[in-house]
Design a protein around this nucleic acid. Structure first.
Length: 538
RNA sequence: GCGGGUGUAGCUCAACGGUAGAGCGGUAGCCUUCCAAGCUACUUACGAGGGUUCGACUCCCUUCACCCGCUCCA
């Protein structure tokens, strides 16, 4: 059943999962607060990820589907890092300029770096654009113009070039522009300023040189600590470094509840391996991460693994797959990204060694400025890896499974939202709302009730509560009718309720009630803990 | 970023240029022996700022937020 998004949003607010940030001042677009139950849910998502990916990983055995054994290590880096990190990584240029997008090729160009030439042919005057410069651009624009006007080599003189290369910034009407990778006219969008990184000041004086940025991704903290982790832990390639933490992007249009937020939490792994085995590792991580969401309850028909088309790949990527979920706020048939698994080659480590890289043909080379020096220099540190066994030195290739904790949490909430009918006290079916959360994710694992507030039942129930409390999140409630208390727990996804009744006073057994099936069974009160633990661990 | 719509109690919804009301919920008490029962009492709101007016939740302007469509989405 498809959840209505507004119902889920209302429930999240009503029961304390999610609130708008700064709500009493009217809210702030793109920022959200997790309430008392939401924080438990998100913590459970993060803990499941950390436990499954890092702490419970067995490096002595080959995991199902993996090409070999491997190690995992965790890290927690600062949010504000050296500005040079973002310059070398390419984020600074990408996030800090006037950019134009091509609607046809889906590529994005820096407005001031696109140049081109005016040409007239067959009575039509167009601007042929190029994202390279110099002789290369002359050649490329010539070639593109020939193709556009459908000319053969011998007809080259039909092209009337008007002046030499000029910047795209001199062209007023983009309707006459043939984009660098486009086949039709007018595919470039108007130039737009991109300040996608949040800027702040480190240092009390706050000059321009003190400008720093809140990280737009956690990944770079891992790359710049690659050598530190190698040197301090005795890990050997292949191994992965995991990190969870907040990232910040000044999104232009935050939309769809928490799906696209300006402050969000990532769960990222950078997995370092030998270039030769990297395709197998890529496949392993892609499949493993997909299975992870399935194992926590996302339904197969709403979750998909989508390999990117070749044209869709980033300039550095050898292969990328998205794990996507059919969120209820999307049109039918559309999916939203939960996680991207990317084969990034040696792009990241090389960037931090040599400086910002750009693609030239099939190769990645250091981008140069007008004087022929690196546009953004790297650290100059040797981040290559020496394999003691094979005596081989190489820059490891990287597989990056990068997940959004808030997006995963939202997907689990959407998936969990259910309505059915349960009989009321007269046996008449009434509507019931319940969150069918996986027990690992449920904010409250069990609720304990006395059936009625007398005859010594509250005392027994409180005893059970006290016994369970050190081991799991437990909720105690003795107010009102028991049916109402069940419904309240259903609405926040509590998998089990324990009820102390008159029979408890006779033989010590209590009723355990299941959220999804409404089934009830009896367990001795002293065995509650063990019984619940085995049920919750599945 | 553009266009359209919506903002009243925790939620769902009324009303009116002149004292803002209901249902559900919540709290407390009574009562209740397994799926939102009943009774009593209490609780809480006009998104924000400005203007018009004797008086604005209502009319006007600005702004903020949310929803829908387009655009965009490392």
């Amino acid at each position: 059943m498809a959840v209505q998004m507004d119902q889920l949003v209302a429930l999240c607010k009503r029961r304390g999962f999610l609130f708008q940030s700064s709500e009493i001042y009217g809210g702030l677009q793109g920022f959200w607060d997790y309430g008392p139950l939401g924080v438990e849910l998100k913590r459970n998502v993060r803990e499941a990820w950390w436990r499954d990916m890092v702490t419970s990983h067995n490096e002595l055995e080959i995991d199902n589907g993996a090409p070999a054994t491997y190690e995992m290590a965790g890290i927690d880096c600062s949010i504000i890092m050296h500005s040079q990190v973002w310059k070398s990584s390419g984020h600074y240029d990408l996030f800090h300029d006037y950019m134009v997008d091509c609607r046809e090729s889906k590529r994005r160009y820096r407005y001031d770096q696109v140049c081109g030439r005016w040409v007239t042919c067959k009575g039509q005057r167009i601007f042929v654009a190029s994202d390279v410069s110099g002789d290369e651009a002359i050649e490329l624009t010539q070639h593109k113009a020939m193709k556009f006007f459908n000319l053969r080599g011998k007809d080259a003189d039909q092209l009337a070039w008007d002046g030499t290369l000029i910047s795209l910034t001199n062209v007023p009407n983009f309707g006459e522009v043939l984009g660098p990778d486009a086949k039709t006219l007018g595919t470039l969008t108007e130039p737009r300023e991109f300040n996608l990184m949040f800027k702040t000041i480190a240092g009390a004086l706050g000059g321009e040189e003190d400008t720093v940025f809140l990280r737009p991704e956690t990944a770079q903290g891992i790359f710049v600590n690659f050598k530190n982790v190698c040197d301090s832990t005795r890990v050997r390639v292949p191994f992965g470094i995991a990190q969870m933490g907040k990232s910040f992007r000044n999104e232009i249009t935050p939309r769809n509840f928490t799906f696209r937020s300006r402050e969000f939490e990532q769960m990222e792994i950078e997995f370092f391996c030998h270039p030769a085995s990297s395709p197998q590792w890529y496949k392993y991580w892609r499949d493993r991460r997909y299975q992870w969401y399935l194992s926590l309850g996302l339904a197969g028909e709403r979750l998909r693994l989508r390999d990117h088309e070749k044209e869709e790949l980033s300039h550095y990527s050898v292969g990328t797959a998205d794990i996507e979920y059919a969120f209820p706020f999307l049109a039918p048939g559309e999916f939203g990204e939960l996680e991207g698994v990317a084969h990034r080659g040696d792009f990241d480590l090389r960037s931090h060694i040599e400086g910002k890289l750009v693609r030239k043909g099939d190769e990645l080379v250091v981008e140069l400025d007008a004087e022929g020096k690196p546009r953004h220099r790297g650290s100059g540190k040797d981040l290559s890896y020496f394999d003691e066994l094979t005596k081989e030195r190489f820059v490891p290739h990287v597989i990056e499974p990068s997940a959004g904790a808030d997006r995963a949490t939202l997907a689990f909430l959407c998936e969990a939202y259910n309505e059915d009918e349960a009989p009321d006290e007269n046996g008449k079916p009434t509507k019931r709302v319940f969150l069918k959360l996986h027990p690992r994710l449920a904010p409250i694992k069990v609720a304990v009730f006395p059936l009625v507030k007398k005859d010594g039942m509250p005392e027994v129930a409180r005893e059970i509560y006290k016994t369970l409390k050190p081991h799991m999140t437990v909720f105690y409630d003795e107010k009102g009718a028991v049916g109402r208390r069940y419904r309240r727990q259903d609405e926040v996804g509590t998998p089990f309720c324990i009820t102390v009744d008159s029979q408890t006073l006779e033989d010590g057994t209590v009723t355990v009630r299941d959220r999804d099936s409404l089934a009830q069974w009896r367990v001795h009160k002293d065995e509650c803990l063990g019984d619940l633990r085995s049920r919750l661990s599945t």
